[in-house]
Design a protein around this nucleic acid. Structure first.
Lengths: 339, 339
DNA sequence: TTGAAAGCGCTAACAG
DNA sequence: CTGTTAGCGCTTTCAA
């Protein structure tokens, strides 16, 4: 095995100039079909692969995008990643994962990566912009950033999301239609938009059904398992505990269901539980969890598609978010209230 | 805001040459501490960031590594990724995710990325080498590849792994110590080394305890939920069904437990179940799953550490794999056999 | 200690 | 259709 061949080597062997080789390799019509073929054959024979750094430097593109999330460890993002990845690789892009852990230093770091040529664009799923960031207010569509899943208000950035409030409302309506009246809500960290929206959907459904929501029926969690347990415990020390729970995500719903069992209450016999997210194994849970399913892969797909459009220089309307439909999966964790 | 500043701009403003700026920025001792400081200040002021493509081209390094898995969608890899990522970023490296989906074309594609400058090294977790790959047999330690989790025999590549057989043996011994005699095993896709090893551990434990393993007590799954259900069904149509199950991974264990409930059998009352992997939510499962926990983050950490060492030119002993310890978490899904 | 200059491998004017 | 040439922005000899 010799050294890595470069374009020059192919040119030499083919008796043409490097320019011709470059053109042939990119299937330019400025080259005879015949020489083009010859070059391609030669390239394969020599096992030639273009040097990406050189190409990137020259073209000022990296052909990769950044997918930035709050916590790579969360399985929830997996299907989104898959959607993004599939769409990206089809278009010749690679995907770089960014993990902020809610650390603003890292958030800005990823924005820097955009500027320093690491990536051409990015899909933001953190729900916020770095503090003293750059000037992405000036020419909205020119900044290759799309926000997915979460919402960043007033940034003039394009969005791909689901109707969190509507989906939450639907979930709670399901509980109401089952006959439940005392329905409590374990929310996410509520100053956050997504948590706010889900809670709003809960409130709407309750209001529309003429049901009152005692303050104590809204407990604030943080989307983690333990928090689901804690909130559940708080709820069931109440003088009038709820007969049903609408939990802002599956993970906390698991925690709540676990705690209910520990307290000797049956799900759904004594208490019904609805989650949100439809995690991969939620259907194998016991009892199978009734939950709102987000089209995760499609979210990833749509976000990448949008980014691709921006990257190709198209003008994007940032005022109209792309809203993808959710579906409520009714499974074993909900039933009419007893007695 | 003006154009992106380059080294030349800083040089002009500072009244020095580009070479000096480059040196100052890389904290070379060939520059006066004073000018070095001045350059740094200027760089910050101008919001300068080096262009990675240019640097990569020049230094022939990309400062990123490839983490190649069979299925990015599998939550199992998440903690490993976190471990890899943390160690990588500490050393100034980025992590590129590679997803093969068991497609050999994609497997080779990732090896190509190594050659074409996309990444400097890779961590392989697919358990196999691309078919007609390159010459990574020649000078073992010179190929910046480390195999983690899985095992690739005879490739002379460094390994980071756990003692699958030993861990499996321990799990089955737990079942035996509980008093179980009829213990069945739902394995992974057995020509694969990892599945083989776990099955081997099961057999050893059974043999050591003087217990016989009827052929029908070993069923082959594929690590997925449905397969756990199917295998479980097969096992319990046997004239003498087992009283305990050692399942090769948690996901199939979920499937099996789910199926047992559907068949009206209580876990662990009627049947004990042990899994392998300790997925994030296994402890919230009902009943909490007894399972073998692998030190996932540490595996990622160790693999990256090893890769870093190779990348720095150190000689690596490929014959001695790094073996990380597992721990058996005894939870609610195992109990003595009834009656 | 600093500067001038030569590329890294590739693409894209510009000429022919 | 093809070749010549000029960089992309950076690092690193080699001289001073």
């Amino acid at each position: 095995m010799r050294e890595r061949p470069k374009i020059k080597d192919i040119a030499k062997r083919a008796g043409v100039s490097v320019a011709t080789v470059s053109r042939a390799l990119s299937d330019s019509t400025l080259v005879t079909a015949e020489t083009r073929q010859r070059i391609h054959d030669l390239a394969r024979e020599l096992n030639y692969r273009p040097n990406v750094s050189a190409r990137n430097l020259r073209t000022r593109k990296s052909m990769s995008v950044l997918l930035v999330v709050r916590d790579v460890g969360n399985p929830f993002y997996l299907d989104i990643l898959k959607g993004v990845e599939a769409t990206a690789r089809e278009a010749g892009y690679s995907v770089l994962m960014g993990n902020t852990e809610n650390d603003s230093a890292r958030e800005t770091e990823y924005f820097h990566m955009l500027r320093d040529g690491h990536a051409d664009g990015m899909i933001l799923m953190t729900g916020k912009l770095p503090a003293a960031g750059g000037n992405w207010s000036g020419a909205p569509t020119r900044v290759p950033v799309v926000v997915a899943l979460e919402i960043i208000e007033g940034a003039g950035l394009p969005h791909v999301q689901v109707d969190n409030a509507g989906a939450a409302r639907e979930a709670v309506e399901h509980l109401i239609s089952l006959g439940h009246r005392r329905i409590a809500h374990i929310s996410g960290p509520v100053p956050e938009l997504m948590s706010l929206h889900r809670r709003e959907g809960y409130r709407q459904a309750m209001r529309d059904a003429g049901l009152e929501v005692p303050d104590a029926y809204e407990v604030r969690g943080d989307y983690l398992l333990e928090s689901g347990q804690q909130c559940c415990r708080a709820l069931f020390t109440l003088p009038e505990p709820p007969t049903a729970l609408f939990v802002a995500n599956d993970e906390m719903a698991y925690g709540a269901a676990y705690e209910l069992r520990r307290m000797g209450r049956d799900v759904p016999g004594d208490v019904s539980v609805v989650g949100f997210d439809d995690l991969y194994l939620s259907k194998a849970f016991y009892p199978p969890l009734t939950t709102v399913s987000q089209p995760r892969a499609e979210i990833g797909h749509a976000a990448m598609e949008l980014l691709l459009k921006i990257l190709s220089g198209a003008e994007i309307d940032c005022d109209e978010p792309i809203i993808l439909p959710t579906v409520l999966h009714i499974r074993g964790s909900t039933a009419p209230p007893q007695g």
